[in-house]
C-alpha cells in the first residue's frame, strides 16, 4: 500500500449570515485539493457559499474525561441568564 493522503475536516457556510458548520471529512494531498474535493463532495446540491478545510491533525479538542471539570462550573451561575431574574408585572422593555 502506498502512503495515504492526509485527512481534512470540512466546514461549509450554507448561506451568508450563518457560521461555517462541520459537515464531515475527506482525504486530499493538500489544502487546495481538499477545497476542490470538498466542493464536489459536500456542495453538490447548492449547500454552500463558502468552505473551510482544516487538516484533521490540526484540530485540538477537549479530552472527554476532562469535560466535567471543563463545563460544569458554569452550570451553577444561573444569574448569567435573563430568566434568573423576576420581572414585576407591568414592567416592559426589560
Amino acid at each position: 500500500m502506498s502512503e495515504s493522503w492526509p485527512q481534512w475536516e470540512i466546514f461549509v457556510r450554507s448561506e451568508a449570515g450563518l457560521a461555517h458548520k462541520h459537515v464531515g471529512s475527506l482525504h486530499a494531498a493538500d489544502a487546495r485539493m481538499a477545497l476542490e474535493n470538498a466542493r464536489d463532495l459536500y456542495t453538490r446540491r447548492n449547500e454552500g457559499v463558502s468552505i473551510w478545510v482544516v487538516e484533521s491533525t490540526d484540530v485540538h479538542a477537549i479530552d472527554p474525561s476532562e469535560a466535567e471539570a471543563f463545563f460544569e462550573p458554569s452550570q451553577d451561575k444561573q444569574y448569567r441568564h435573563p430568566t434568573f431574574y423576576h420581572v414585576p408585572d407591568g414592567v416592559k422593555h426589560l
Binding site: 502506498s2 502512503e3 493522503w5 494531498a29 493538500d30 485539493m33
Partner: peptide
C-alpha cells in the same frame, strides 16, 4: 490509481 495518489502526495510534499 497508486501512481496517481503517489504523484499528488509527492507534489504536495515538494511544495510544502
Amino acid at each position: 490509481g497508486t501512481w496517481v495518489r503517489d504523484a499528488a502526495a509527492e507534489y504536495a510534499r515538494k511544495h510544502a
